[in-house]
Computed example of a mutant assay.
Amino acid sequence: MAADTIIIIPARYASSRYPGKPLVGLRGAGGESASLIERSWRAARAVAGVDAVYVATDDDRIADAAHGFGAEVVMTDAACANGTERCADALARLGIAPRVVVNLQGDAPLTPAWFVSALIAAMKAGAEVATPVLRLTPETHARFLEDRRAGRVGGTTAVMTAQGQALYFSKEVLPYTGRLYSGAEQVPAFHHVGVYAYTPQALAAYMQAGACDLENLEGLEQLRFLYNGLPVTCVEVEAQGREFWELNNPEDVARIEAVLHREGIL
């Protein structure tokens, strides 16, 4: 039977900000250390209604580690410039055409299953590309600003229309408000969660378009869709008490491990 929905986890070793990041160990609530790529794979496996999960990489060290914990691996071209290109390459090598392709980036082990389920639902309702956004809390907003003041790239923010169509994504904290928030105040900014869902046709259009100035300047692959007039649907999701954080910098290891311990994630 043909696959309807698959998850691909793109992973590369040569990160400019954090080389070897996929193999960094993260200690869970039970004291067990598991690599970032394994924890991301576990997060993908927790999503209901997915036919297959693949780790897509060009590095033998990552491939060996992934095989070691039981993942299916697709070896991809080292020339892939980003995770979306790696997903497109992996799909071509697999020789399949699922209805929905989910890109769960290999630095997001705290991605809740319901974030991905919401994307899959949006795709089956007719979206061509979908990605989740999470309203910033006053604490997270302050942390984003702190990272930028310290010269660190923290989370990405999303700006969208009233209908939920993306206008722009940035590593700056947008929209600019010039203030901090506290208590029960609603922060008018959204964290873009690094997960995407695409149709195979949208992936093909992305590859045909080629890299654009905006994606190169910001270092954000999804800007290629917007630059070329391809709509991206932002799906607002709820944290449901779960703190979401990606592993962007070495400082994030302690943040993620704290969440693993607090949530009882082994």
Rank of each mutant, 00 (worst) to 15 (best):
M1C: 08
A43S: 14
T233A: 12
A209W: 04
R17M: 08
A34G: 05
S182F: 11
A189F: 00
F169Y: 15
A29C: 08
A197T: 05
V24K: 03
E32Y: 12
F169H: 07
A52Q: 11
I96R: 15
C87L: 09
E146P: 02
D89W: 02
S35H: 05
V55A: 03
D60S: 15
E238T: 10
A142T: 04
F225Y: 15
P250L: 08
V235S: 08
H141W: 06
L266K: 12
L266Y: 08
L26V: 09
R93F: 11
R242Y: 12
C212V: 14
A166F: 04
E243K: 11
D107I: 01
E246F: 05
I6T: 09
V173L: 07
A52T: 05
A127P: 00
A46W: 03
F244P: 02
P175T: 05
M123Y: 01
A142R: 10
Y196I: 04
V253R: 11
G25T: 03
L134M: 15
A209H: 13
L180G: 10
L247W: 00
A127R: 01
I7R: 00
Y13I: 05
D213L: 14
A63P: 03
H191G: 00
P112R: 12
E139F: 14
A43V: 01
A81M: 09
A66N: 02
Y54W: 15
V259M: 13
R149I: 07
G183K: 10
G28V: 04
E38G: 05
V195D: 12
D59V: 12
T5E: 11
A65M: 09
F244T: 04
G106A: 14
L223R: 00
Q240Y: 13
L23P: 10
E72D: 12
A108S: 15
Q163K: 14
A130P: 02
A121V: 06
V237L: 13
I9V: 11
E172H: 06
P109Y: 02
D51P: 04
S117Y: 02
A44W: 00
E218C: 03
